[in-house]
Design a protein around this nucleic acid. Structure first.
Lengths: 146, 146
DNA sequence: TCAATTCCCATTGACGCCCATAATGTCCCA
DNA sequence: TGGGACATTATGGGCGTCAATGGGAATTGA
């Protein structure tokens, strides 16, 4: 499978590192992705991580908006001003920086959440709660009501 | 027969493995399905299991939405973040992970339930109860009363 | 020069591959 | 039609491999 799927919670060690799940690393390797582009999610208290192509996709979306709209402005602020590039170490571990911690509330553990073309970093409990809430919404919205 | 039908209850061994019923494996083999997509059922305390085509069906629903909308974001969180890929071992056994246990209450035995294009994992007693309840509903609803 | 980051190696535990055995069902033939 | 050989399934467990984790040493950079 060549997209990010499922979720896993890993520990952050004394140096602030956390292992990226092997299945996620496999996806990155298959697309030859070395550098990771990170930014905060628009909706959730999470940090999204993907290849440089992810950044390009967002730029295209901004281009489609009215350049003077508050939405385009806000999006650019988050995407360009708020984004960072990161790299994994030799064992496939990610440094959990203050940038990540501040937007997520992550302290000692990270939940990696697959989102098809990218993945996200969540504070474990926040993910649990949001997953349950989103599931309840979908039930009302009719996805599971066939 | 090329769809999942009937049900069977199998033991979970000390390593957390359970044999998938041979008839189900035959269905998987006939469609060349190697990887299994699993997710928490939207209404029942069960985990649904099917081929990647099951995931694609959900993704088509997401594709109909504005990719930057909260709805699409939420649906992806559930479908991508909440789903898992699994593989059977060489003997056709499935690892009963905590993901499965948490959503079903499964402990030492698992009931496999055929649902035509996919199958489900249930805690045996929960399945019995739900089966009986569904049967009663049908009786009231008049399906058998024509 | 000090602190933070990266490299490298060790440890542990989980998982997959392999083989063995028991239980069950099926088929063939007397 | 009964019985027995055979096949298949469900299950148990040994063992090697790899992922996740921890920590010392080297390197970088302010």
């Amino acid at each position: 499978m060549n997209r990010f799927l499922s979720n896993a919670t890993n520990k952050i060690d004394a140096k602030g590192r956390a292992s990226v799940p092997a299945s996620f690393r496999a996806v990155l390797a298959s697309s030859k992705t070395e550098e990771l582009y990170c930014f905060q999610d628009f909706v959730f208290p999470a940090v999204s991580v993907g290849g440089p192509d992810l950044l390009e996709r967002f730029e295209q979306q901004i281009a489609r908006l009215d350049p003077f709209s508050p939405e385009a402005n806000r999006m650019s602020l988050v995407i360009h001003g708020g984004g960072v590039f990161m790299k994994l170490d030799q064992e496939g571990r990610l440094m959990v920086t203050d940038f990540i911690r501040n937007h997520t509330g992550i302290t000692s553990e990270v939940t990696f959440v697959g989102r098809a073309d990218h993945f996200q970093l969540w504070q474990p409990q926040a993910y649990e709660d949001m997953q349950a809430a989103a599931r309840a919404e979908l039930r009302l919205g009719g996805l599971g009501s066939r």
